[in-house]
Design a protein around this nucleic acid. Structure first.
Lengths: 213, 213
DNA sequence: AGTGCAATGCCATAAACATGGTGTTTTGCT
DNA sequence: AGCAAAACACCATGTTTATGGCATTGCACT
């Protein structure tokens, strides 16, 4: 197997040098650089040509989060493993959006840290369980918060709602369903009662947000 | 430290018995039950009183995913660790929504599997890196998909749209904006032209989908 | 000084809608 | 066999919308 080229961005000198030693002292790994800040990150990457970047999430000047964005823009293939002291919701979320692959706490033992480096390189996303927990919560909220609410609509009613969302008039809906406009009116009455609304627009809003459509 | 009570739901007999042996043979762990299906899961849990459930994601009859929902409803404190052969996007996603805590591949080595059990119990979410990768992608998509489309609406128009989505009539909107209903009508005319729609409901649908609101 | 756009206001009318009824037929479930 | 629910249909009435056109004010940019 090829030796993995790793570079480090970490403002804390002790940690930076510790990691440097660790990586260089481990077979299969090679530390091609260790930098205290990200001011010249594009050049740093260009000159060291790394497979994996170990990035501190909190750094003075350009933060690790911004650095991810910059790095990924120029070098989309390089894998980035974020390191953080705290499992801060917001920072994790932003890093994910910027395209970092893995997230581990600095307290992770050396052996697992090396394993994580290998894993990001191989296309996985190593994550400290406590961080993964936060990520899961984000996924749940981003979706299941707005979860499915059926409101006990019948199939026909759902169909009518679908057409309502498309902005169709009673007449058009009637034609699409092959029924009379009055029947459409009837269905909509029932829909309104079930959704507890009093207009098409309210119904549409509730339907979309409730994922009926 | 207390001994962790674990129970297993796994249809494959060899695997089930293998896991049973593994857990019972490890200090700090105790397998209080191993079941081939989830038909009687509520009773199974009640009688074994587990800290952690190891759940196969694919099972005949009640699937692991449905089982999570059932189990969590009655026993919200119990931690559930899903096991799966493939890192299937959809199944992972559903399990998350149903409330499972951890996700590991069945190919995970025994030591790590035990570590994962301990981690879910302690509130973390152990995840195989390849699964974590999928989850990250979901987070990214669920958010960055929120492509903003402004339609060149003015601030006032956006405000009116906001009220439209709440299902308000011209009159109510007028009161909220401290302007006359006719002005509201005027704004809405412009909104319709910009959004290229011809009714409140269409406008609402377009606004919500385009994330103007 | 002038052009353009946002925001405001008003009038008018046909069309669409919301809501209250009443009633038949079909269909699934017990 | 019989009931409940869903789907269908129709009527009536007052309200709300959609769309056209027209006018004033103020701000920003040139």
């Amino acid at each position: 197997m090829k030796t993995l080229r790793v570079i480090i961005f970490e403002d804390n000198r002790n940690l930076r040098e510790g990691l440097f030693q660790l990586i260089n002292g481990s077979p299969g790994f090679e530390c091609a650089g260790a930098f205290a800040n990200c001011t010249d990150i594009v050049n740093d990457i260009r000159q060291t040509n790394p497979d994996v970047i170990l990035m501190d999430i909190e750094m003075p000047g350009i933060s690790g989060i911004e650095a991810v964005l910059i790095a990924k823009e120029k070098f989309p293939e390089v894998k980035i493993l974020m390191e953080t002291i705290f499992d801060d919701n917001d920072k994790i979320f932003q890093s994910i959006c910027n395209g970092a692959e893995g997230y581990i706490l600095k307290s992770t033992p050396p052996i697992q840290m090396l394993a994580a480096i290998k894993e990001v390189y191989e296309g996985g996303s190593p994550m400290t369980p406590s961080i993964a927990r936060k990520v899961l919560k984000m996924v749940k909220h981003k979706t299941s918060a707005e979860t499915v609410n059926d409101f006990d609509l019948t199939d026909r009613e759902k169909e009518v709602v679908k057409y309502l969302v498309q902005g169709m008039s009673y007449k058009l809906i009637a034609e699409s369903c092959f029924i009379s406009p009055e029947t459409v009116n009837g269905h909509i009455k029932n829909i309104y009662k079930k959704l507890q609304v009093h207009s098409k627009s309210e119904a549409v809003a509730k339907a979309i947000k409730g994922k009926i459509v």
